[in-house]
Design a protein around this nucleic acid. Sequence first.
DNA 1: CTGTATCCAAGTGGATACTG
DNA 2: CAGTATCCACTTGGATACAG
Lengths: 130, 130
Amino acid sequence: MGRTPVDGQPVRFNAFTASCPSRRLLDTIGDKWVSLVIVALGLEGRMRYSELSARIAGVSQKMLTQTLRGLERDGLLTRTVTPSVPVRVDYELTPLGRSLLDTIRHLKDWAEAHMSEVDDARAMYDRKHQ
Amino acid sequence: MGRTPVDGQPVRFNAFTASCPSRRLLDTIGDKWVSLVIVALGLEGRMRYSELSARIAGVSQKMLTQTLRGLERDGLLTRTVTPSVPVRVDYELTPLGRSLLDTIRHLKDWAEAHMSEVDDARAMYDRKHQ
DNA sequence: CTGTATCCAAGTGGATACTG
DNA sequence: CAGTATCCACTTGGATACAG
């Protein structure tokens, strides 16, 4: 999200720099299912695949698995396989995942406090522009 | 992001409910260019279209205009046209936009503090899984 | 139960050309 | 200068079928 200039050159924001941590975080939590998974695990502590699937309305198997794999890879949750028959798999937030949950709660707070103002602004804009 | 149950039924997260403020906020700031525009305007206060275009690397005219229109519609910034020749257009955050900037800064703080841990987790995951 | 693999429709966004 | 309009390549994600 823009690097601090060290050479006196003007700052130029660059969404493409792989080194931009903010961009990467936004790409992660901007994903449709990521925050839902994190919030669900934050509330329940530990959940099975089937519980997550039931809890998150509309998610397909493909997207739930893909989301969980990505979050596991990022160190935000752990995946525990119990080799019973049938197999049981549990997911749980890591400390890193729980700290991200706090950040997501800030977003949630802003959203719940201010999205109605956004709605009002939209209604007014749409009225003005037909 | 899940509604509080009022009838004793289990909570079910639903990313589709238009009424979910968190989902809508995430959709907004998850957009590739939105946060870059907001942060740029937060830093500079007021900027012309051409200044934004120069400041944000890689943005196309189409996407910059589209992003600015969306943010104007949401009441997050104002658009001021000065009918000179050639025309001059300035963009500036509204108070609502500045309050969102604060929230974005929280994200930025988490990202700068923890994305290196995510990198480490990814490296370890990729090593384990070939 | 917990996935994996494949197909494909819809959405996203860059490039290019043109305009008040 | 500050856009608008159009085309199209690429990505995203749901549906479906299959598997350990």
